[in-house]
Design a protein around this nucleic acid. Structure first.
Lengths: 339, 339
DNA sequence: ATACCAGATGAAACCGTTTACACAAGCATC
DNA sequence: GATGCTTGTGTAAACGGTTTCATCTGGTAT
């Protein structure tokens, strides 16, 4: 079933069939109608490989992701896919393209894509030279200035963290504020911890080393960290900014397990504003990241670049903002109570 | 940069280059070496469109998903992608292909794919005729017998639910067991509710209508349902099987908000065994679904079918099993206490 | 020496499109 | 009535690979 069959069936040449389908304004209306009918009757669908070979366009966007944690990943993909669909594109996704060298596919099927959305979370993984070598239009998500002239989109971690700390400082002295980070080298965690330190400095307090810890993005690490802090007697009367919600929930669970009340004894703010926040008790305050916006913007930016390959690179930072819930409210009495 | 350049550079014909890269055993070892070097030096990468045009293979698997809920989606995609990567395939994903008719892409870019993995969650969405019309090798995920001769993979909801109810019946009479479902028409929720009813019958109790409710997969619905049940005075001393973890957590939160203890006053079991389970207190018992296995199996099944197009359709059900945590433990004393 | 065969390579056909170019017909212009 | 322009269509050349078939080489059996 090829364009030739359609041509025969409707009594025109293949060129006319092609034009009737792609540029109907160049064909007489009645011919278009006849061709369209043949297409329907025969159930013809153009071969995308042949088309792509010639046009060098597939309307496919490659998405290369690190091994991303659950909720974030799904929300990003959903919004990106929605937007891509609106614009007539499809998403070719691989969370393994990052280790392309050892890929038995023998390299990227991403060559099928018109362009690439690359998400980076680790400083060391910024192998942007490899990406540039693909000479595909690219949008980088998660890094601000990658040192390569490509468009970038990332979250404004700094403003979000500053806001969160300002909120904590309203009820807790700077000396009693702690940061429970992810692993060092993670771009977001590093930015958030730096902003945390900066916020304390602006308040006139130089953070001590034990106010900032690094670990990993997990419940368990949050729980372990908080346990150690509690055993050192540091936590009651303190406030914690966690690098993500999972850590924050781990901290909250440890506090509960050791009989501390939240927010009475310990105030907690997470990062990401994932759907975890509303489901745990007390509800978790968190810095909201507009993940859906990130996905949409990434697709938009890439499509824009596909249309204007020579536009100068844009760098956008998406605003983040604190959502205050129960876990960080200021308690006037200081007495223990469950929220 | 085409195969022709490589041919010139290494002083052989394009046919030899093609063979050196695809079937090196047909070419003299030293020629292979020379061609490989040229490829490296020139940075040649074969054009996948040209290749696909001829071979009718792209090593791309189309994945069509309904609008799936967060954690499940990401876990499925991750395992499918891992497996696809191992086998040298890539994933072309669309959660919008289900509404392909209204798709401005003007149909599937999925035509680029060698085969399709289609996930279905709703009875009404079983538009498998449309899928069959694509005449692409297809694996259906989420339905057992779709009425179309394709491979299917789904979870054994029945065994999981039976096990969960058996566990609940150990400490709670059948009259005080309730099922908090998702919306009717959802395949999993329906199967789980039917299995719940069946389990009570096997225990010699015909479930009354108010023992089985339908709503939606959300914290809020779980909370609202539980609140109504509490107000009717039905819950203390009862046990709840929820159709997924979010509902279960909503129920647990309502119980806590109304001063009921878990599992003392109310025992709860969820479904999915998502990472929520370990992060809430008390930790949530849940029926574990081997989601990673589902993703892997789906890819395996499709690849198997690509290699043997005429094998008879297979239908596999993946085993599920109850993971007992704190939310459903049997309390000997019956006194209120937090786990 | 002849015939035969295996192994390595090249020439050319082909996959299904798009598109540059040519052409014909119809119509207005001078 | 020749000229030019517009509109609709067809012819044929790409696009970049794979694969069939033919050719050439050199070694081995007869």
């Amino acid at each position: 079933m090829s364009i030739r069959n359609v041509a025969e069936h409707s009594g025109v040449s293949i060129a006319t069939v092609s034009r009737a389908l792609n540029t109907p304004e160049m064909v007489s209306p009645e011919t278009v109608k006849r061709v369209r009918r043949s297409v329907d009757e025969l159930g013809y669908r153009p071969n995308l490989f042949a088309k792509g070979l010639l046009t060098r366009r597939s309307r496919v966007i490659g998405v290369s992701l690190p091994d991303i944690h659950g909720l974030f990943f799904s929300e990003l993909m959903r919004s990106a896919d929605d937007r891509a669909c609106e614009l007539g594109y499809h998403l070719l996704v691989s969370s393994n393209a990052h280790r392309a060298d050892e890929n038995p596919a023998g390299g990227f099927a991403l060559d099928l894509a018109d362009g690439l959305i690359v998400m980076l979370t680790e400083r060391t993984r910024v192998d942007l030279d490899g990406i540039a070598a693909l000479d595909l239009p690219t949008v980088v998500v998660g890094v601000d200035r990658p040192g390569v002239p490509v468009d970038t989109i990332s979250f404004d971690n700094v403003t979000g963290a500053l806001g969160a700390v300002a909120h904590l400082l309203e009820g807790t002295p700077a000396q009693r504020c702690f940061f429970a980070g992810g692993h060092q080298g993670n771009i977001d965690s590093d930015e958030r911890s730096a902003a945390f330190a900066e916020a304390l400095r602006r308040d006139g307090h130089e953070p001590t080393p034990d106010q900032i810890s690094y670990g990993e993005y997990s419940f368990d690490w949050g729980w372990n960290w908080a346990t150690r802090m509690i055993q050192k007697g540091l936590l009651p009367g303190a406030a914690v900014l966690a690098a993500n919600d999972e850590i924050a929930i781990g901290v909250a669970n440890a506090a509960r397990d050791y009989g501390l009340s939240i927010p009475g004894d310990l105030r907690i703010v997470g990062f990401d504003d994932s759907s975890f926040c509303g489901c745990v008790r007390p509800k978790l305050s968190s810095v909201h990241l507009p993940v859906d916006e990130l996905g949409r913007e990434a697709v938009d930016a890439l499509v824009r670049r596909l249309e204007q390959p020579d536009a100068s690179p844009r760098h956008s930072r998406l605003a983040t903002s604190l959502v205050v819930r129960d876990s960080s409210r200021i308690t006037t009495d200081g007495a223990r109570h469950d929220a």
